[in-house]
């Protein structure tokens, strides 16, 4: 459903004569497209180029497109693998940073959020799509209304709540607000469950399966495509989140990558920041998502669509 219909192949549309004699407009269109692609991809190359450089050599090689004084020192530095002296020699601040720890924290937070949110939202979506109970449609409408509330509106009171529960600087505190539901996920999954033929469930129930077993053994496997798409999007959103973990998880033991990057940036000495270290750290923060994208890119691209609008 969220998967778009395959685009009608435009080469079948009769406007072929242009292909043979490239017009000015068509050339300009390609130039614009290629310029956009270059502008999109160049910063990623620049991250890599800088991360492989020696910070002390960057200034004298500012106009070179290759790594300045190529080294893996920046990565070793931000992963806490080099000594203080080595780090300072290559332009690091010498402060201890440990991106292994932040990477682990990000993994824990994003994984827990995704598993919890998708599972609990799938359960709720099933109740909204398949079960009959009083108040169902009123509650669903209320859920959907919550989509309109801008995050800042609930963020401040949620912070107070997490603080009052004594959960500041714990994984649970970071994860909790998104663990049980987001309105969008419920809405999204309900649409799919509505499309599953009822007969399949009923057959299983005649065979004596309970509701929960039907849900686990029939509904979830049959919706594996939309569920994995949703999980992927949830994972990326959670991985990239900055505002909430900044408020409730600043302490080093639970600090996630985005928060750590902000702190790393503010710790770099004014005037001569450790650019190579900073870019190595951003690359480490971006890498898991980039890998996920390389493997599952098509699914992500196809999930972005607007065909729901009449």
């Amino acid at each position: 459903m969220a998967v778009l219909p395959v685009a009608a192949d435009p080469t079948t549309v009769p406007r072929r004569r242009r292909l043979r004699r490239p017009s000015l407009g068509r050339t300009a269109a390609w130039v614009f497209m290629i310029a956009s692609l270059l502008a999109t991809l160049f910063p990623f190359y620049w991250m890599l180029r800088t991360a492989l450089s020696n910070t002390r050599s960057l200034a004298s090689n500012a106009d070179s497109f290759l790594p300045a004084d190529i080294t893996l020192g920046a990565f070793e530095r931000v992963l806490g693998l080099s000594t203080q002296a080595e780090a300072i020699a290559q332009g690091g601040s010498g402060a201890s940073v440990n991106f292994w720890l932040y990477l682990k924290n990000s993994l824990i937070v994003a994984t827990t959020t995704t598993v919890g949110q998708v599972f609990f939202c799938a359960m709720a979506a099933y109740a909204f799509a398949r079960l009959t109970w009083p108040g169902r449609d009123k509650l669903f409408f209320a859920f959907i209304t919550a989509l309109m509330i801008p995050p800042i509106f609930t963020t401040l009171p949620n912070f107070v709540l997490i603080k009052d529960l004594g959960l500041l600087n714990t994984y649970l505190g970071i994860v909790l607000p998104g663990l049980l539901m987001t309105p969008f996920a419920v809405f999204f999954l309900r649409q799919f469950f509505l499309g599953i033929p009822r007969e399949i469930e009923e057959a299983a129930m005649i065979d004596g399966a309970g509701r929960f077993r039907v849900f686990l053994t029939i509904i979830l496997p049959m919706s594996s495509a939309p569920i994995s798409t949703l999980a992927l999007l949830t994972y990326i959103t959670s991985w990239n989140d900055y505002f909430w973990p900044l408020l409730v998880g600043k302490e080093e033991s639970v600090r996630v990558l985005t928060v750590a990057l902000g702190i790393f940036r503010s710790q770099t000495p004014q005037g001569s920041p450790d650019w190579a270290g900073l870019m190595a750290a951003t690359l480490i923060a971006a890498l898991p998502i980039l890998i996920l994208y390389l493997v599952l890119g098509r699914k992500i691209i196809n999930s972005i669509g607007f065909s729901g609008i009449k």
């Binding site: 956009s36 692609l37 999109t40 991809l41 910063p43 990623f44 620049w46 991250m47 990326i236 991985w239 990239n240 900055y242 990558l257 985005t258 990057l261 902000g262 940036r265 900073l278 870019m279 951003t282 923060a285 971006a286 998502i289 980039l290 994208y293 992500i300 691209i301 972005i304």
Partner: peptide
Amino acid sequence: LLLPFLVANVVVALT
């Protein structure tokens, strides 16, 4: 073209 959107705001900002 979609690539930048998948990377965190913080990463984009620092780059």
